[in-house]
Design a protein around this nucleic acid. Structure first.
Lengths: 208, 208
DNA sequence: TGCTTATATCACCAACAGGTGACATGCGTC
DNA sequence: GACGCATGTCACCTGTTGGTGATATAAGCA
């Protein structure tokens, strides 16, 4: 029981990192509800005044957290890991690959889901910034791989619609097990969702 | 300026209604962030102790609010207003009608959107109850009109996928104007979204 | 050694939260 | 009128929040 009084590190870099990672663990534990100056400082085992000194307040700290975390999947990840190979695929396979990758990317990022949910109820400078990064990332991905289609269908709207549906379902899966009869808690349930998306893709994309 | 001291009504029913409607206006003004005992009492211009006496606390008050509001569209509304007519439509037109009605129903219910967003970050007894009502409503609607299809496709998953996408986009439209290049702020933007859903429906549903 | 500076803690503040017990006041009944 | 009861107000409690000024202490340097 010698935990009462850790000797201070007196190292700004390390202390800063401790604070940043405290944001992460607190976010994972309690969500954004319990994310305050006092709580973060407690979690980090450090005085809250350091948040003001080093990050100029909580927003600054959260911004630092968001920057260092890969809270949003990269273009490469959304393409299934291999950009070269991806760009060579036919359109329908690209879409299927994107669907599967997107689900996986969100499922393994609890913090991203928490932030996405947060954005819906508390828009502020910070969420706007995160939002901007994401919008840009999505658009880059889309332009890169889907822009030059000549299918005659509104591919962009279709992709975004699928993205919206998957985002919603993954976020919901944190709180509920069933949505409209769809099982969100098991891999089989997600297979079913992937399947229907793929079915739509197959019937909508003109085969060459 | 004689507003300082309204004479007390001394009518439990009326006072209760005032409290309930205060929840609504506060929710519309500030969202769930500022929804506390003190704030509601202030908004209602009434002492907060009455919340405990009449509703046994804030959860009870919110429950009362949720019950009296039509926070979730009825089966009839989702069917476009006329159940008879709706049930006579071919499957693809049913789906198109549902899509349009669902968008409209959510767009005109800011409180429903707020509650839906709230459910994603603060699951509790109350949100679970609202959730249950909604799940039941959706399933009833689906069973009633889409259960007996013989199309061979996973109609349920398709409908729920569309519902998820639309829910997400409408909720997002409260905070952002553009999602993945889709315009969420204008009717034209929503026409585009409806169109792509209808296109999917046309190509996916086997025509007779 | 002694000095400066960065690092971190502590003590405190005002504002607000949820919650409760004591009290005032009006209404219906006998 | 006098009583009891429902309705409503008030004062106050404890705990927590965001925020800040004063202070201790370790590290680096002359």
């Amino acid at each position: 029981m010698t935990e009462k009084k850790q000797l201070p590190l007196r190292d700004r870099q390390i202390t800063s990192r401790i604070l940043i990672s405290a944001v992460g663990s607190l976010l994972a534990k309690k969500g954004f509800k319990g994310l305050g100056v006092n709580a973060v400082a407690r979690e980090a085992g450090v005085d809250k005044v350091l948040i003001y000194r080093y990050f100029d307040g909580l927003p600054g700290l959260i911004a630092a957290f968001a920057q260092q975390e890969d809270f949003w999947p990269s273009t490469r990840e959304m393409a299934g890991g291999d950009l070269e190979q991806f760009s060579g695929l036919p359109l329908d396979e690209k879409l299927s690959m994107f669907t599967a990758s997107f689900i996986q990317a969100l499922k393994k990022r609890p913090l991203t889901r928490a932030i996405m949910a947060w954005e819906m109820i508390e828009p502020n400078e910070l969420t706007e910034e995160l939002e901007r990064v994401r919008e840009e990332s999505i658009m880059t991905f889309f332009q890169m791989f889907f822009a030059k289609d000549k299918t005659g269908i509104d591919l962009q709207a279709l992709v975004m619609l699928v993205g919206a549906a998957l985002s919603y379902l993954v976020i919901r899966s944190d709180n509920i097990d069933v949505y409209g009869g769809l099982d969100l808690a098991t891999d089989q349930g997600w297979d079913r969702i992937s399947s229907v998306v793929n079915m739509v893709i197959q019937r909508v994309i003109p085969q060459e």
